[in-house]
Amino acid sequence: MPLAAPTSRFDAAAYLDWEAHQPEKHEYLAGEVFAMAGASRAHATIALNVATALRNHLRGGPCSVFISDMKLHVQADDAFYYPDVFVTCAESDRVQDQYMSAPSLVVEILSPSTSAYDRGGKFASYRKLPTLREYVLIDPERLSVDLFRRHEDGHWILYPAEAGQTVAFDSVGLSLPIETLYEDVDLQPGQAARHP
């Protein structure tokens, strides 16, 4: 039987124990929990396309690809998130089971209810991860990808991609036509994805 959500703030250890017994997923930020909403068909399809492309590319190597069922810990913010897709190549994450903490790439598929947070507060939190090299935001309603890359000087630079362009995941050495990420997604007229 699922445990009820605590009525007051609780620490990360209590959250991890409580979350392990919940039928739904909850993100955690400094003592507060937030229920995760369900995803649209387009959202789920794009996440699967991204994860599949990354998994096929990285298979057999030291990196692992995770989908939205694995938590990502941002210790600097006392936070646990469920990114749509992320990659970790860190030795320290190979011995973890409940959550990872050293990603090189994080991908979020936008939704109307989370878009502002994914671009603002969540991105600010992810930037505190010293291993993170790229943060990618994908719009499920049109061919539009915003890839933010951390450069050696610590600055984050935006590399946007639209129809007909390539998305370069330099952190893992993979470049894909943007249409590959949108395969089998019904977009607005004039935004149809190519189906290989």
Rank of each mutant, 00 (worst) to 15 (best):
E183G: 09
L137E: 01
E179S: 15
I157W: 02
K128W: 07
S144L: 14
T166S: 09
Q188W: 14
S171H: 05
R127A: 15
H155T: 12
H151D: 14
R127H: 11
Q191P: 02
F169V: 01
S125P: 11
L137M: 08
D184R: 10
L187C: 13
V136T: 10
L176T: 03
Y126E: 01
D186V: 13
E141I: 10
L176D: 03
E152G: 11
G173K: 06
D146P: 05
G164T: 10
P160F: 04
L143T: 03
Y182V: 11
R119S: 03
E183Y: 11
T131S: 15
D118P: 00
P140W: 04
G173H: 05
I157N: 03
E183W: 11
E152M: 12
W156K: 06
D186F: 07
D139P: 04
H155K: 12
A161K: 02
L143N: 04
V145S: 03
T180W: 04
R119P: 03
E183S: 13
A124E: 08
T180L: 07
V167C: 03
P140R: 12
D186T: 12
D170S: 14
G154R: 03
R119L: 02
G173P: 00
A116F: 07
A168T: 09
F169Q: 00
Y117T: 09
F169I: 00
V172P: 03
D153H: 03
S144W: 14
L158P: 02
R150G: 01
R127N: 08
L147Y: 01
V136A: 01
A192G: 14
I138S: 07
